[in-house]
Amino acid sequence: MNEALWALGRGTGVVALALFTMSVLLGILTRSGRPLFGLPRFALTLVHRNVALLATAFLAVHLVTLLGDSYAQLRLVDFVVPFLGAYKPFWLGLGTVAVDLLIAVVLTSPERASVGVRVFRAVHWLTYLIWPVALLHGIGNGTDAGAGWFIAFAVVCAVAVLSALLWRLTGGFAPLGSVRADLTQGDQNRTDPKRTDPNRVERNR
């Protein structure tokens, strides 16, 4: 029984990481404002959301199974307060940090309408922290961390997210909407246009 829990805990951890990686990728792609893979934009958004929810479900199983596992020596407090663990407290703590932040993301997402787009986006930006922290937790804590397949998996995840991120930072990322956004942001630093006198336009022509 214990062996089964242990295997399930490890397996769900890896699957959760894979799904979170997909969700982060889809989130970045969604932000580009393009339809991709033959899917319309709203469908892409829905897939992003559902993959994230699925990942969260796998994460829940990952936590519960490892709580039941005597080998990992987890206590409930380790799910909330990081770096208190008995076994590899630092690497376990990273997992705890990721879970805590993820809870904020998961809670604000369906409540977007009530918390407002600003709060939602600010909290959602945390995923850029959650994802690498979760990856490190997997590498540092995982039993399979030394295995070739896991290293390959981690490298593929990292390369995918990093390249999506690089694309995100380039000028051609979002084809539309940037004109308005640029102007609004630039406006705050812009000095007020000079009013001269009522004949200004006549003089300028």
Partner: peptide, 23 residues
Amino acid sequence: TACDGRGLCTEILPELLARDDWG
């Protein structure tokens, strides 16, 4: 003042909404 022309609404409501020159 909030719209960035991301276009999701025009896909969900093609009967009601098209996209203009800028999306």
